[in-house]
Design a binder for these strands. Structure first.
Length: 495
RNA sequence: GGCGCUAUCGUCUAGGGGUUAGGACGUGAGAUUCUCAAUCUUAAAACACGGGUUCGAUUCCCGUUAGCGCUACCA
């Protein structure tokens, strides 16, 4: 692929390593890559960077696919890094042959042995860099284990440079870069090597990834050049952090950082995508709610910020029972609520139905279709249908405080009279909005009480609580039989 | 410690040498309504600090501070 066609048809990739569930930060990286590809008529590639055999898990692979599937954005090509080992070793060999890498026979560090020391930066293991080719070959042939390290140019005051699509011109003295490993002593490639080898082989034109890789990029530029490739275009994304400014982590911050948490709570993928796009990127025209197509249309690297973005959830301890208001960013909730309101009733209905049934209720599509308009403006998350519309689903209302039946500026006697009268009136009224409206208002007038004082006892009697959807619509869906039965059950509570 | 990145309302952000520093979420108040929600109106709320450059700096430069990242034979 020549540079002209690359310019017109960029090839981007999302390369997660399957060492955990799909993180919201990773999801955003995927989305930005996808948006860039679609905006520019390019190719989106999914590559599983599974070179860390120790930490990879199938569950993680599952979680990543599950999450991406839910996002419903798709990709054009798919690869698995572990199946491309030959390619990686080939590039390592090529770099070694050019003398740009060397074998390091020093045993691997045991871990935190070096942690406590406040010594300067480690750059390379003394003696290994200068090992003669003959001795290096001899020891390797003898079976002595070694790591292959990149021979970073030293002492020449040389700088490594690249132009980042977000952070601009970047330069770093080669003398500040350590001789990083290309191959581990078990022969497996490191992330740096495998990533660059694959990016080169797959002709990736733009690498869009988290800013935590900004420093690594100098190493990658070195690898690309050593292997004879022109480095791709880089663009680094600001990180997503917790309210306390620290990196989002499952251990510290709980399920908020997992994409499936959003899915399971009842986010719409579109709203979730919209929310993530607004963290660290802006269309710069005050637009916030955007459809997928609009996002594709306006997305550009120029709109990406350089400062980290806070995902604004409440940092509740693991002991507290977390509510949606605790664990989700208010903006995410608002965006989801807005998106729900834009959904056609039948669409929303078909998303709600499985949730209601999944909670163990029997529900017909026809009845759900009647309920849907009553909850549409009252839920921020699809799952909230279960708490907002519970009284439509249950046979028996959960116990409620009889005091709720008593209207504003009224007493139990007033509630009784209202309910008694309602019973009579409703038994002869057609259960449609307008007739219900007329007869109940008339009844209130007869009793000499305000409409609100008439409605509240009825609402509580049929819904089991004060806050509910509008009364007439509710009664209409509930039907005469259920309504009268619930009023009958309420009356004794006022005795 | 070394290297790098960053800094506008509580949060996400727009802006940019001269502005009433704009929008959104959230929060407060009010309107509307049969409650809730939705909707509408409205209020409070920001340029981290110190030096330059300049007629003028929130904007440009330097420094300080703070935060973050990298500093593994993790990715």
């Amino acid at each position: 692929m020549n540079s002209t066609s690359t310019l017109r048809h960029p090839r981007v990739r999302f390369a997660p390593s399957p060492t955990g569930f799909l993180h919201v930060g990773s999801a955003r990286t995927f989305i930005f890559n996808w948006l860039y590809a679609r905006h520019n008529g390019g190719t989106m590639i999914l590559r599983l960077d599974d070179t860390d055999v120790e930490r990879n898990t199938d569950a993680s692979v599952q979680s990543i696919f599950e999450g991406l599937k839910w996002l419903n954005l798709g990709w054009d090509e798919e690869y698995k890094q572990s199946e491309r080992g030959a390619l990686h070793r080939q590039m390592a060999e090529a770099i070694l042959q050019k003398g740009l890498a060397y074998r390091d026979f020093t045993p691997a560090h045991t871990g935190d042995s070096e942690k406590s020391g406040a010594q300067g930066t480690w750059l390379f293991n003394p003696g290994m860099r200068e090992l003669s080719r003959e001795e290096s070959d001899r020891r390797a042939a003898a079976g002595e284990p070694f790591a292959l390290r990149f021979r970073v140019p030293r002492g020449a005051g040389q700088a490594v440079r690249f132009n980042d699509g977000v952070y601009g011109e970047q330069a770093k003295q080669a003398d500040d870069i350590e001789d990083f490993a290309l191959l581990r002593s078990d022969g497996n490639p490191t992330y740096h090597l495998a990533s660059c080898a694959d990016d080169a082989d797959l002709a990736i034109s733009h690498i869009i990834r988290g800013q935590d890789h900004l420093n690594n990029t100098f190493k990658h530029v070195l690898i690309f050049e050593a292997a004879g490739f022109k480095p791709p275009q880089f663009a680094h994304l600001p990180l997503l952090v917790a309210p306390d400014g620290t990196k989002l982590s499952k251990r510290r911050h709980g399920p908020v950082v997992s994409v499936t948490t959003y899915r399971d709570a009842g986010f719409l993928p579109q709203a979730f995508i919209n929310f993530l796009c607004l963290l660290g990127w802006s269309p710069k025209n005050d637009r916030e709610q955007m459809s997928r197509d609009e996002l594709v249309q306006v997305f550009s690297l120029e709109g990406i910020n350089r400062a980290n973005a806070v995902v604004n959830f409440k940092d509740v301890g693991t002991t507290t029972a977390a509510t949606p208001d605790d664990i989700f960013d208010p903006k995410a909730l608002w965006l989801n609520a807005e998106t729900i309101r834009t959904l056609p009733i039948d669409d929303l209905c078909s998303r709600l139905l499985p949730i209601v049934r999944g909670a163990g209720f029997t529900m017909t599509p026809a009845k759900m279709l009647q309920i849907t308009p009553l909850v549409r403006e009252r839920i921020r998350l699809l799952r909230e249908v279960l708490t907002v519309a519970d009284f439509f689903f249950v046979d028996q209302l959960a116990p409620y405080d009889p005091a709720e039946l008593v209207p504003q500026k009224g007493d139990a006697a007033m509630a009784r009279r209202a309910l008694e009268r309602a019973k009579e009136v409703l038994s002869t009224t057609e259960f449609k909005h307008d007739p219900l409206d007329h007869s109940l208002r008339a009844a209130a007038q007869e009793l000499g009480i305000k409409a609100g004082q008439m409605f509240q006892p009825i609402r509580v009697a049929v819904c089991g609580r004060k806050n509910a959807p509008p009364l007439f619509e509710t009664l209409e869906v509930l039907g005469k039989e259920t309504t009268l039965a619930r009023i009958d059950q309420a009356l004794p509570k006022l005795a």
